[in-house]
Computed example of a mutant assay.
Amino acid sequence: PGEEPAATPGPRPEGMGEVEAAHYGQGSGGVYVPCGAGTIKNCTGLSAAEVAEAAGAGLPFAIEPGSDEPQVLIMHTHATESYELEDNGWYDPEYTARRTDTALNMAAVGARIAEQLNAAGIVTLQDTTLHDYPSYNGSYERSNATVRAYLEKYPSIKVVLDVHRDAIEYDGKRVKAVAEVEGRQAAQVMIICGADKNGNLPNFKKNLGFAAAWENAMESRYPGLTRPVLFDYRYYNQDLTTGSLLIEMGSHGNTLAEAQYAGELVGRALAGLFTEGA
């Protein structure tokens, strides 16, 4: 027998909130700075020319495919962030979009990125510590200590990816950011790169060079997958390496399946960047 057809979502049950699909395009003009197929949303006081110069510098590190030493660390400051499990078009307002089960939270998405990198011969480690549980406060201090311990143990690590999901909500609706890629629906993704404020991120321009190269690698391979890079005065422990970035994998309105598919695409594009140089 063939596969059962997918069930069509029924009417929204009483008391449930609406999930609305949206697609966020690349920006142009104003605060948007082009970087290949993608763009950077410049929310800093730096000029567009300064941002473009840093963005065009390329990778500030050399990844070694085929080396048996770890090159990349994937971790999760907010590991319990999670998704809808079914594409119903509605959500339960009692659902906080957080889960401690690593098969259903950010760890399950980060695993897909790691799989693609490891398959390409780029040794990638994943840390699945729940830095935000039982207490959300202090998550970044705890993840900072985790990353420092990995860097001390494995000085070969050049890239640290903090994998999160966004939360987009308005008028009681939760938004799922989506893109159709190769006939399937993926969660849209967004890189966040911090800018220096009072000396907290002295090497931020190097991180931005990496962010721009990765953005272009994703958007050129899978048009529509990415939202513009958010370049703003954030910290997010991005001083620990020159390859430290945060990436948002969809939103709390997306399904886990959409986010995992996005993880596969993100990982493929990053592996391509590291093995082919673009």
Rank of each mutant, 00 (worst) to 15 (best):
E81A: 14
S82A: 15
S82L: 08
S82Y: 12
S82D: 15
S82W: 09
Y83S: 12
Y83V: 09
Y83K: 11
Y83A: 12
E84C: 11
L85A: 02
L85T: 02
E86Q: 07
E86P: 01
E86G: 02
N88E: 00
N88H: 06
N88W: 00
G89Y: 03
G89H: 05
G89L: 06
G89C: 08
G89I: 04
W90A: 07
W90K: 03
W90S: 09
Y91E: 05
D92H: 11
D92F: 08
D92M: 08
D92W: 09
D92Q: 10
P93A: 04
P93F: 01
E94S: 00
E94F: 00
Y95N: 14
Y95K: 07
Y95E: 14
Y95M: 06
Y95I: 03
T96A: 09
T96F: 07
T96H: 08
T96G: 03
A97G: 13
A97C: 14
A97T: 12
R98P: 02
R98T: 13
R98Y: 03
R98M: 13
R98N: 11
T100I: 11
T100F: 05
T100A: 12
T100E: 14
D101N: 15
D101L: 06
D101W: 02
D101I: 05
T102S: 11
A103I: 04
A103M: 08
L104Y: 01
L104W: 01
L104V: 09
N105L: 07
N105R: 10
N105D: 07
M106F: 06
M106L: 15
M106Y: 05
M106K: 04
M106C: 15
A107C: 10
A107D: 07
A107N: 07
A107P: 01
A107S: 13
A107Y: 00
A108T: 08
A108L: 11
A108D: 15
V109K: 03
V109H: 02
V109P: 01
V109M: 02
G110M: 11
G110C: 13
G110L: 14
G110W: 00
G110E: 09
G110R: 15
A111P: 05
A111L: 13
A111D: 15
R112S: 06
R112M: 10
I113Q: 12
I113N: 08
I113L: 13
I113W: 07
I113E: 12
A114I: 04
A114P: 04
A114C: 05
A114L: 04
A114Y: 07
E115G: 09
E115K: 15
E115L: 15
E115W: 04
Q116L: 01
Q116G: 01
Q116A: 07
L117I: 04
L117N: 04
